[in-house]
Each structure stands twice: as C-alpha cells, then as structure tokens.
Amino acid sequence: MFFPVVAVLAAFLVGGVFILAIGESPLQTYSLLIGSALWWPDGIGYTLFLATPLIFTGLAVSVAFRAGLLNIGAEGQLYVAAFATAWVGIVFANLPAAVLVPLCCTAAVAAGAMWGAIPGILKARFGSHEVINTIMLNFIAVAFVSYLTQYHYRTPGDAILETAPIGANAHIPRLARFIPGFPERIPLNVAFLLALVCCALVYFFLWHTKWGYELRATGSNPSAAEYGGISIRRQIVLAMAISGGLAGMVGINEVLGYRHRYYDGFSDNYGFTGIAVALLGRNHPVGVVLAALLFAVLTRGGVPVDAFTQHVTKDIVQILQATIILFVAAEALFREGLRRWVKF
C-alpha cells in the first residue's frame, strides 16, 4: 500500500510542476479536479461509470500478469467484444430480455476471450512474444471492427461511424432506477455491479481454486510449475483467454448499458489505462478497484479543469496517469531513496 500511495503523490507533484510552468495554480486545479469528480450526484455517478471499464481492463491485465504475461491487448479485445455484443443485440433483437441480455454478455466474454487467446496460442505454440502480438492485434482489431461497422452494420445515411441500435430488450438498466434521487441522465448501470462481482470471482479463482493456483504457479516460477506437472502452454492460453474475456466485458457496459450500439473508436484508451490500473493495484482485485476509482476521478475531473481554468487542459490527466505508471514501475527509485533516508 505504501509505495503506490507514494507514487501517486509523486506524480501529483510532477503534474504540479507542469501546471506551475504554465502559470496556473496546482492547488486550485487539483481541488477543482478532485472536488468535481466527487460531487453528488453527477460527479460520483460519472466517476463510477468511468471506473467500470477500468475495473474490467485492470482485472484483465492482472490475471495475465499473475501468469507471467503482459497483456497490452486489452484495447483490441474490448473492441472486438463490444462489436460482438452489438452484433448479437442487433441480429437477435426480437428475443425476450431474459434470453437476449445473457446472450449478449456471453458474446462479449467469448469474443474478448477468443481475441485474447490468439496471442496466447501464438506464444504457447511458436514462442512468439505476447507483447508484440497483442500490440499488432490491437491495430488489426480496430481496423477489422471499423470495416464491419462501415461496410455492413451502419445505418444507411448515418454520418457517424456507428452501428444500428441494438434491440430494446438487450438494454440493461441504469442504476438511477434503484437509487432514489439519482438522476436518470447518469449512464452508471448494472455493469458496474457486474465489475465488482468479477473482482470477487477473480479473487476466488486466483486464490481459492486449483486452476488459479496453477496459473499463479506458472507466473511465479514456470520451470518449477512444469516440473510439478502443470502444462505451461495450457496455462498461457487459459490466462490470455480469461484476460481477454474480462476485457471484453467492457462491451457490456458500453453497448448494453450506455450507447446501445457499437460506436467506432469509443474506447478512451481503456485497455492501456488498464495496465496502469493493474500496476498501481498490485494485480490484486481490491487494488484494481481502488486504482480504477483513482483513474476515473482523474478522467472525470479533467472535464471541468478543461472548462474552468484559463490554460490547463484535460491533457493534465494523461500526464498524471503516465507519471503514476512511471513511478510505480520504477519503484526501486523510492526504495533506494527510503533506504538512504533511513540510514541517516
């Protein structure tokens, strides 16, 4: 807990230097940023809504990481999955909600898992590095899905690159329906609850099942795991598929809960922010939720910062995010610093 907090504080310091450099007040900017993101109900509502995809991608990266794999491909996985979700919602629009919603969710998970499994298979079978392959598959996914949208599923005459709407039976309810006084305009929906359930499931899977144990064993010491009778190759494919499936659930939030269609280029770098979320959350489900909330606060708070300060744009959010990742990744920096300080 200690080093991630130090990393976040250090990142805010660096961000403060940037803000000072252009002649604005860091304190004012930060209080605007954080204050507006936690304001009831819109601030909190949107923050939780923005946290939802980050919890999914953060979990996705964490599971892969526990198996010793770096999944840079969550971005591509969630694009393919979101399209698949919309596709099912369009094609089977007439099915009753009780069938259609689970079907759409299954499509999201299956498509994400499939796209995630590809680099897993490539690594298991040919030994090619998952980092390069996931990067390449991100671009392929974006191009492929944009092709399908543009040429096959766009409403004729629509100027925006998006598919036709999904059937009304595939919509999942917004949380406003269950919380008195919570305005309906806030897109926070039951996918957020699903994300929390997934955290619990991932925790249970990793630490309380045989499969999860094998997956972690593969990550912490592959040769010992192999010696113990675990098939590394199978674990690699399995971990990447689970990871992709989790990333794919972003499609549930986006398509079933929010836009009710596939919208080309919808992802605000969720897949890449997921790496930051996993890293900051120490690849633990609880840490992932906390980190996702932090990044959601930054994203949400960036909007008023953009509007109500003279010169600070919402790009400060990216600067903060990137600096947090750098500091968490280079943790040795603080460890050495601490050691030196304690010696005195």
Partner: peptide
C-alpha cells in the same frame, strides 16, 4: 522497471504533454 510498462507510460505521457503545452 519493466521496459514494456515504461514504454506504455511514455506513450500515454506524449499524448498528454503536446496537448497540454499547445493549450498553454
């Protein structure tokens, strides 16, 4: 630090910094 993670961070940073500076 993990080189892939650092690289990702730099890519995100460089989406932000040009936007931030050009705004100012």
């Amino acid at each position: 630090a993990d080189q892939v993670v650092t690289g990702t961070a730099i890519n995100i940073l460089m989406i932000g910094v040009p936007g931030f500076l050009s705004g100012a």
